[in-house]
Design a protein around this nucleic acid. Structure first.
Length: 578
RNA sequence: CGGGAUGUGGCGCAGCCUGGUAGCGCGCUUGACUGGGGGUCAAGAGGUCGCAGGUUCAAUUCCUGUCAUCCCGACCA
């Protein structure tokens, strides 16, 4: 491609609306243009990178025996009603009402395609002999984001690769899942992305049924917990801690239990301000309804409840925060004054609670707190549980070493679905014993534009983007310094044509501009290799070749420059693929 | 949806408090000089000051409403 024939609107200044590096750089490098909040045009350079990512995904999906197809973005709302997701999605689902003669047809823009593909399989799969099978597509998805942000990382319209596996047995599901998991690892490696597969909250199947693929990045929206020594990694909702049950006997030399007036002071931070204490000294008491029955959950004041863990510890189906009336009934006080001492419902506590000596907590009496609250004397526990989100430094459940807490960008998700959708939509098959069974499903997503945005976010320097060869919009940028020098342009055109013949993606900056200007732009858009043909070099019979992150260019005889650069490109590719 | 901020040429901003002529830098056009890390000089083009209403002789400026965008939070199969 010649620069003058393309649309590459680079910018020297950073648009005021862009906050994080990937957004700023993608705008400045002319990759994207914002149409409205959460909707971006991919300009020629940006689209080339997206296509490169998509092709890598395609190759690896095909290698894993998944089969590509394309489903409509327009979907009948009826399908979502049948799986209950019309309600579940809420405002995220973009609904349309379309006139068809005198009727109104209700439809939605597909946020994902479980319904569509399960319906398809319900009509075409009859026998276990047709299973297993994995199908995929690369297609635009629509999800109304209440708050789009971070440029292209969180938009209402985005490109996604979604794959769905269909199995007759759990063993088949496991095989398909593993094949997708392995394919994902290869995909992200080939894209040059640092990634961490983390355990994620699993659905109906339980166990090891869901992994998210995360790019570690400061601006990531997700939090992941990982242990370097054991390799354990999980998202915050899922992460276990290796904490043990502490001593539940009485503390030595406890303070006496005292009641204190705390009028209208109900939150942890308000109490801390009033009593000049730290949240770590407080016992947070949350009243939940577990299978409709009230239960008090005790946490240290600075910790966050993890409802998944609480549900599992209580072994209940449903768990929700109790309503005001229930809280008042159980505690005998208004909201904000609950505590374990003399509360009118069962209590369950996190491992860290008994260790709080002389704790401060609600007194189950409006406008009143207790100080000097201690285990055994003032409240009793027979065991404790892991009920909270992990925090930096918690021991790893595998190694016991302290774990790290980092932010990440979710680029992929693999998930064992089970039979939720096949049950709802009647996707079943006849097994070898002529018994009807529901197809067992898995689903596997990759955010294609998050691959590109994730790279922009994590791979750049003060001069601009730094693409890995596999995702770079062009592999090589060729810069003739004097576009009005006919002899020089002839040589440049020859190199350009030869590189193209060799299958190298080359961008020739044929603009009439000063050298410095072109160098700055070349660095900004981050093309991995740069060839410069200048007047002096031409007289010496050499071109200059420089890697994006090299300090100095290398002088290469003009006759060898094509072979030399082809070699560099191939080596860079081999490194990512190997 | 709660809280905060901002809308002035393609981009970045000033002007507004204290009403009266719309300004700067970058970019763009033309020419000359230049020519290896975002050049210099000269001459130009480009604006319903987000939109609507109100106050006023007069509104970019004051008032009301509205829309949009961004940030923090809630939400995110």
């Amino acid at each position: 491609m010649r620069w003058t024939k393309s649309l590459i609107p680079t910018m020297k200044e950073t648009p005021a609306d862009a906050e994080i590096p990937s957004h700023q750089l993608m705008l400045r490098a002319g990759l994207i243009h914002q149409l409205m909040a959460g909707a971006y045009t991919y300009l020629p350079l940006g689209w080339r990178s997206i296509q490169k990512a998509a092709n890598i995904i395609r190759e690896e999906m095909d290698r894993a025996d998944a089969v590509e197809m394309l489903m409509p973005a327009l979907q009948p709302i009826d399908l979502f009603d049948r799986t209950g997701r019309n309600e579940d999605f809420g405002s995220v689902l973009i609904r349309l009402e379309v006139a068809r003669g005198d009727r109104k047809v209700q439809m939605a823009l597909g946020p994902t395609h479980e319904e569509v593909i399960t319906d398809l399989m319900a009509r075409h799969i009859n026998s276990y002999r047709q299973l297993p099978i994995t199908l995929y597509q690369i297609q635009t998805k629509f999800r109304n984001e209440e708050r789009p942000r971070f440029g292209v990382l969180r938009t209402s319209e985005f490109l996604m690769k979604d794959a769905y596996s269909f199995a007759s047995t759990l063993e088949q599901l496991d095989e398909s899942y593993q094949a997708m998991y392995d394919a994902y690892c290869r995909i992200f490696k080939r894209c040059g992305l640092p990634y961490i597969p983390v355990e994620a909250e699993s659905g109906p199947i339980g166990g090891d049924a869901s992994h998210e693929f995360m790019i570690p990045a400061e601006n990531g929206e997700d939090q992941i917990v990982y242990c370097e020594s054991s390799g354990y990694a999980a998202n915050l909702e899922r992460a276990e801690t290796g904490r043990k049950q502490p001593d539940l006997s009485a503390a030595e030399n406890p303070q006496e239990l005292r009641e204190i007036d705390t009028p209208k002071v109900g939150t942890i931070s308000e109490v801390c301000t009033l009593l000049k204490c730290q949240p770590e000294q407080m016992i947070k008491t949350l009243i939940y309804l577990a299978d409709e029955k009230p239960v008090a959950v005790l946490l240290r004041g600075d910790h966050e409840a993890n409802e998944g863990k609480i549900r599992r510890a209580l072994n209940v189906e449903s768990l929700e925060m109790a309503d005001e009336a229930t809280i008042e009934k159980v505690t005998g006080a208004k909201i904000g004054f609950a505590g374990p001492v003399g509360i009118g419902c069962p209590i369950i506590a996190d491992h860290d609670v008994p260790a709080i000596k002389d704790a401060i907590t609600g007194a189950n009496k409006t406008d009143t707190h207790y100080t000097g609250v201690n285990i055994a004397r003032d409240y009793q526990l027979t065991e404790t549980f892991d009920l909270r989100n992990a925090v930096q430094g918690d021991p790893c459940p595998k190694s016991g070493e302290p774990m790290n807490l980092v932010h990440g960008i979710e680029v992929g998700h693999v998930f064992k679905l089970g039979t939720k959708y096949s049950d709802a939509l009647g996707a079943d098959f006849l097994n070898e014993h002529e018994k009807r069974e529901s197809i067992i499903m898995g689903c596997y997503g990759i955010g294609v534009n998050r691959i590109v945005a994730g790279l922009a976010e994590t791979s750049h320097d003060e001069n601009g983007l730094i693409w890995p060869i596999s995702i770079a919009p062009f592999e090589v940028i060729l810069i003739p310094l004097k576009t009005n020098d006919e002899e020089l342009m002839q040589v440049a055109n020859k190199v350009y044509a030869e590189l193209q013949d060799q299958g190298v993606d080359v961008l020739m900056d044929d603009r009439k501009a000063r050298p410095g200007f072109k160098f700055k732009d070349a660095d900004l858009i981050g093309i991995p290799y740069r060839i410069v043909i200048g007047g002096k070099g031409l007289q010496e019979g050499i071109a200059e070749v420089k890697g994006r992150t090299d300090d100095q260019p290398e002088k290469i005889p003009l006759d060898d420059v094509v072979a030399h650069v082809c070699n560099l490109v191939q080596k860079a590719k081999d490194e990512l693929n190997g």
